[in-house]
Design a protein around this nucleic acid. Structure first.
Lengths: 349, 349
DNA sequence: GCGCTCTGATTAATCGTTTAAGCAAAGCCT
DNA sequence: AGGCTTTGCTTAAACGATTAATCAGAGCGC
């Protein structure tokens, strides 16, 4: 027994008005040749019957499902709410639904997750890769959101520029010795952010990078970063490559009795949910996720419309980098005398 | 021009083996009457051709899309990554895809988001409501994940028990004056958690609740909570109803020079991503989101299979509450002499 | 008047799958 | 041997939309 959906379909509208289904279809889509008044009448009738087209029927005929896949190999990413929200909004504005797929952090199951999406015949995919995983060619157009230096990247925040602005902000406050705190050296995003920060160093300044995952391989997850020692070595600013690491630095420094921002400054990236409400609130770089999502989705829908896309084509966008915005809050301040009593004195920068 | 999908379909397999499509369909689904050896042969051939069934064709015929909708009116919820991951995992194990819908926090557009899902003919929906929004009947089975006291709730963590365990933990450590920190008084979840904590109070103990959103209506977003004053009033434990509020309390107390856990204890809920890595790491209650998702999805798929579900039926599960687990970390400790020097002395519990 | 175009509709095929119904052959019982 | 069930497969009809092809009629120029 073929289950018929509750709502009305094209043929019900057609028989009800005494016309053919083709005419109804044409009237609603505005494609064929239908007289103006008949179009009017059909649309009116369809509206009052509460007609909603069956995506299944349409998909079967056109070969398009009207659904985009969102692949997040690192779904535990705290940015996920913002990403998902932005993509869903942009996609639904373009008439698409969003199907999520997750590989639970395991890189091996990433292809499996992609396959699940292909089986559901998504029209395109947006992939936010973890680390530098090569995206194997899939059976549909693919947009990649990572960072400009990732090969095949479609659109992303300008992480390099973001790093540069953080550096300019800190140097403008008088800081000369900056500790960059990252999580993982293999992350293209974190590398670009760190590169941007280093590009802002002026002569006589010093930047050093601390990679947390290396530390944790020895000390275990959640181990101390030894930041108090770094303060004693003369570092006055701690530029984390993500707000998660900034938060970690902030609490560790506070626990060691170091005051922020009077003693040292702490900055982050991404403007995550806790950043405005911790004490002191975090100075950070915000990415315009809405705009990035919009660009990615429109690049994807363009590729879907013009069917020139060969299988597994990575789509490109005219705008590949979206500027990040500096959000100055309480955790960064002038490099003043407050730090003096904590320093050994030999590093004066 | 009807676009044919790249892969093979049933009829290609059928002609290639000289049988009918019906037989192929039956062989693959194991439904009709097909001889054992022919089943073997067909499945083998299908596998080597890399056959994947068209969801569109199947959906059209069966009236089922094989997709569940996930509605999160409060998508900014920091729990979202865990929720989405758990639901996606449970759904894909049951052979379903997950379509997300978001109402951007706006309660008015919640119905619109639900409608988008209905248009894409999802077979069922999982709704995680914000506040106490009544779920209006939709055109498919609906599972609600909130808390036991929400009418129509399908399955949820046992927030009351979680609160009770936090209370027992803190009283066991000798705390007698506990400040409960919540965000919003209208949240069923937060109310249940607070209720659980209060239920654990023994004679002579005192619990008070601080609602942040009320404070912020006057003081603005991110305003101080005045916790140092509370410490002076004799509170030795701060039990936040979410790790986000716990983090806020933790940093504010640290900034005021109050040491955790030697001076006061701080606990949270949900075991969010930062909880293990801040200093001191957060004692918190973890919910078994995987199990909750599994129960919700199986309740939903059961309702879908047995089509007795009238439109808009809220499904129920045999197990409505899933126990929470106490995670003891560094932010809670004995109510000892460390607090003495900060207290006025009149409240000794 | 004849042929031409243009308009406004219909007819029918098609996408890929599921499934009820039909049918031939074989096996079994009395 | 005749009637019965069982087995193993095929036929065909859907599901709901899109769209190429067709067709009837009107308008019009020469």
């Amino acid at each position: 027994m073929p289950q018929s959906r509750p709502g009305p379909n094209l043929s019900r509208i057609a028989t009800s008005l005494g016309v053919s289904v083709a005419t109804v279809s044409n009237a609603l889509s505005g494609k064929g040749r239908v007289s103006g008044q008949l179009i009017e009448k059909i649309r009116e009738h369809a509206a009052e019957l509460g007609y909603v087209p069956s995506q299944a029927g349409r998909a079967l005929r056109t070969g398009r499902s009207g659904v985009l896949g969102l692949v997040l190999p690192d779904i535990a990413n705290p940015l996920f709410p913002k990403i998902a929200q932005a993509i869903e909004f942009a996609a639904s504005a373009a008439g698409y639904g969003v199907l999520i797929a997750d590989s639970r952090g395991d890189a091996a199951t990433q292809t499996e997750a992609i396959n699940r999406l292909v089986e559901r015949s998504v029209d395109g995919m947006i992939i936010i890769p973890r680390r530098a995983t090569r995206i194997s060619a899939a059976a549909c157009p693919v947009a990649v959101i990572d960072t400009a230096s990732t090969p095949g990247n479609t659109v992303a925040a300008d992480h390099w520029q973001g790093g540069r602005e953080i550096a300019d902000h800190l140097t403008g406050l008088g800081h000369r010795r900056i500790l960059i705190i990252g999580n993982n050296q293999e992350s293209n995003v974190q590398n670009d952010r760190a590169g941007g920060i280093r590009s802002g160093m002026r002569p006589g300044m010093h930047a050093e990078t601390l990679w947390i995952d290396r530390l944790e391989q020895a000390g275990g997850i959640g181990c101390p970063l030894g930041l108090a020692e770094k303060v004693r070595q003369g570092f006055t600013a701690f530029a984390a490559l993500s707000d998660l690491q900034a938060l970690r630095a902030l609490t560790e420094l506070q626990q060691a009795g170091i005051n922020i921002p009077t003693d040292v400054s702490v900055t982050g990236f991404d403007d995550l949910i806790w950043s405005p409400v911790v004490t002191p609130s975090l100075t950070t770089m915000r990415m315009d996720m809405d705009r990035i999502a919009e660009i990615a989705v429109s690049a994807l829908t363009d590729a879907i419309k013009t069917r020139v896309t060969r299988e597994g084509m990575l789509v490109t966008a005219e705008t590949g980098r979206v500027a990040m915005q500096l959000i100055v809050r309480q955790s960064s301040g002038p490099c003043g005398p407050g730090t003096k009593n904590l320093r050994d004195g030999e590093h004066v920068g």
